[in-house]
């Protein structure tokens, strides 16, 4: 374990070098320790990442590394961290089976999907320094048939945990102005009336408190900035405005030990960003207007034209009777 830990700075340097090679637009002088990633949602919890300009949080982060071929569906991904020096990385499959320790490579910890295991993987990086235990967590989505992640989320993975209840499903995501619930627990038991802090790459900072059942309801702030126009073609996927990283973090001290846990993912613009309810209602009404002549009876039309009342209301259809 110590060999792993002592070799980490070297691996991190090599990872940073490979990331630089993959992205020539990144500033050459960007320090390894402050390398950040803006993330664009691809599907579920799957993210592609880009270098960003400045550090936005001091909380532990666990992210996908920028590597060549990272966009390929179902391909293994490399995970890297920030603000934490992990002893080990682990991935919990959605089936709820035992976690796998991730192999460390030059670019980061290698996360590979297992066939028929499912879409969502819960990935953690854990650091133990004396009485201080820090865990960074995130999810990664592989397009991979298999069981739902309910069991994976419910099983205890570390002492102090922030568990999404539920995760955004396929075609869903965390979004501005939406409330999402997270379960805060210690040793598998809900932790009531405890503060949880939220920080976003757009600069928002909020604090929330867990209720009696340990549930923290997080409202994602409306702090998005205008997105750069997307390039046309190439078979990508347009999911609207760029997703923004966020991190939820909390601390708990018990028996002289300090536990820190964080969950990071991304959220995107408000559900109605880039949409217009007025236009939508207008075109719907336009469609109704087009259909409205169908609702008029022929005798009603004749009556309107003649300007006389028609007493033949007993007829029920436009077409002739013919039994």
């Amino acid at each position: 374990m110590k060999i792993f830990k002592s070799s980490f700075p070297v691996l991190a340097l090599l990872a940073a070098w490979s990331a630089e090679a993959a992205d020539m637009t990144a500033p050459a002088s960007r320090p390894v320790a402050t390398m950040e990633h803006a993330e664009r949602r691809v599907h579920g919890g799957e993210h592609a990442q880009r270098p960003a300009a400045r550090e936005w949080t001091s909380y532990p982060l666990l992210m996908r590394a920028m590597t060549k071929g990272a966009e390929q569906r179902g391909a293994p991904v490399l995970m890297t961290t920030k603000n934490i020096q992990p002893d080990k990385y682990a991935a919990h499959p959605p089936s709820g089976d035992a976690p796998r320790e991730l192999e460390l490579t030059l670019g980061g910890a290698k996360l590979e999907p297992l066939p028929e295991v499912g879409n969502y993987y819960w990935v953690t990086a854990r650091e133990e320094q004396g009485d201080r235990i820090t865990v960074a967590s995130t999810t990664h989505y592989f397009s991979n048939p298999g069981p739902a992640p309910t069991k994976m989320l419910l099983m205890q993975k570390h002492e102090l945990e922030l568990i999404p209840q539920p995760l955004p499903r396929e075609h869903g995501r965390y979004r501005e102005n939406e409330d999402w619930k997270f379960l805060l627990r210690y040793n598998g038991q809900p932790l009531p009336s405890h503060a949880v802090k939220l920080e976003t790459q757009n600069g928002s900072k909020n604090s929330f408190s867990s209720d009696a059942e340990g549930i923290v309801t997080v409202r994602f702030p409306a702090d998005s900035k205008p997105a750069a126009p997307k390039k046309e073609g190439g078979g990508g996927h347009d999911h609207g405005p760029r997703s923004v990283p966020f991190v939820l973090q909390t601390e708990y001290e018990v028996n002289g030990k300090q536990y820190i846990t964080a969950f990071n993912s991304t959220y995107s613009a408000d559900a109605y960003a880039g949409r217009s309810l007025a236009w939508g209602t207008g075109f719907t009404l336009f469609g109704m207007l087009l259909a409205s002549p169908l609702l008029r009876r022929k005798q009603d039309i004749r009556k309107a034209k003649a300007g006389v009342p028609d007493k033949a209301q007993a007829a029920n259809t436009n077409t002739a009777k013919g039994e």
Binding site: G240, G280, F286, G287, M288, L290, L294, L295
Partner: peptide, 30 residues
Amino acid sequence: TEQIAMRTANPINFTLAAIGNTMFGFVLLA
């Protein structure tokens, strides 16, 4: 009401959404 709100970000999305919403209104009343 998110889905009845039309995408207005670009002309293609707008056009498809306009067709969709018009068709929805038409079908519902027809």
